[in-house]
Design a protein around this nucleic acid. Structure first.
Lengths: 223, 223
DNA sequence: GAACGGTGTATGGTCTGACCATATTTGGTC
DNA sequence: GACCAAATATGGTCAGACCATACACCGTTC
């Protein structure tokens, strides 16, 4: 784990332990670095992440408002989702699968023409020279499908799950021993969408995810 | 504007200008710093932001996969992405409603006993002395339902939408002029869940959200 | 020629120490 | 008491160094 990630965790814990609320101020960068026994660079990288997550806002100067000010409690916000990009949260395969089924079935039912990114990813998987390369385009394929459905929030959620998608895809390729079945699934999804066959597209997505998450597949109908 | 922010803008422009796609690699930190005439620290802070946004992933080592690898095109500008992550103010009612329907219908279909928090919220709404108080417990009711379904990721998404839920609920109460219809919906949902009537619970949730988001309600079936 | 193994090297990760810009605090002056 | 200037604390930035890692390269061996 990189240093700034441990700093992130410590700051988070500190916020919870000290009961800091919106408007409160974090210790200065130098003080934080000394307390956590890390360099100021690492503290700054952590603060940049927190800033990106909308948790703190940095102010220069000297007054009581200077420093990293808490502008949002780190719990219960989109921060939870974005933190997934950094691998700070562990999600079960069950949770990831259910969420993917929900988002990707919904997307497949609504997208009526395959976006260019999806078609390109399909072709790239055909000529992938390694499992890693295949998986990269695999994820791109699914993200492109979701993006095409036009709900930015759902797209953001799927992107936030990227690490979980990658590790599962790598595991699936290793287990299957080849990528043929997965690619056949992709082609079926692509064809159905191009044909405007919503119901078939949804079924294809469902079958594909069932193959990618064996042992977990349930009926996913919500009436 | 801070240096790392200009670096962000330059990287964003470079991705667009060079037509970089998923899997492509950005120049190394040292090279980037030299090209942009900034320190490596500033480049690193920018990369940390991009990583948090899920745009790049850093890999150590020496191979062609080392360095900052593009894992997602920043569709739209980075500023848009940041805004999306911070405020959700750009989120349309349509996107929020679709996401809520997805999550809450799914939850309603799976929860077979109303959790205490849900029952308490229902009672609290009955005795609420102001629209604000009503809305607070209203949100708690929906969050409790989702929490009971046991998928932390979906719970996080709904919580992330909290601000949007509040503003919509306030608007709904103002428009209706009373809270009776909304509360009747809540009671119907609660009763169905207590009775283990999954199908009825899903239908009740759907009807409730249709009332809360008038003019937007579609059929939401995904086969 | 192919397979193996050690070394070189480029990369991200981290640290140190310094200086700058800014804004408040402090304290002296009128 | 009001005002102004110096001291100071803070974030922002930079330069340079070293480490760990993982591929690239090249010689050795079979």
């Amino acid at each position: 784990m990189r240093t700034f990630e441990t700093v992130l965790a410590q700051i988070e814990q500190r916020i919870a332990a000290d009961g800091l609320t919106v408007g409160d101020r974090l210790p200065g960068e130098r003080q934080l670095a000394e307390q956590l026994r890390v360099s100021r660079s690492s503290v700054r990288e952590a603060l940049r992440v927190l800033e990106t997550l909308g948790v703190v806002s940095s102010q220069v100067g000297r007054g009581p408002d200077a420093g990293a000010v808490l502008i949002s409690r780190p719990d219960g916000t989109l921060a939870d989702l974005l933190r997934l990009n950094l691998g700070l949260t562990t999600m079960s395969a069950r949770e990831v699968l259910d969420t993917r089924l929900m988002i990707e079935r919904w997307s497949a039912a609504r997208v009526t023409a395959a976006p260019a990114a999806m078609t390109e990813a399909l072709a790239a998987m055909d000529v992938a020279g390694s499992p890693e390369e295949f998986v990269t385009h695999d994820i791109a394929f699914h993200v492109a499908l979701t993006d095409a459905a036009g709900n930015r929030l759902l797209s953001a959620v799927l992107r936030a799950l990227r690490d979980a998608l990658v590790s599962n895809a790598v595991e699936a390729v290793r287990r299957l021993g080849h990528t043929g079945d997965l690619q056949a699934d992709h082609r079926r999804i692509h064809t159905a969408i191009e044909a405007g066959a919503a119901e078939e597209a949804v079924e294809a997505v469902t079958a594909h995810l069932a193959r990618a998450y064996p042992g977990l597949s349930p009926s996913h109908n919500v009436f």
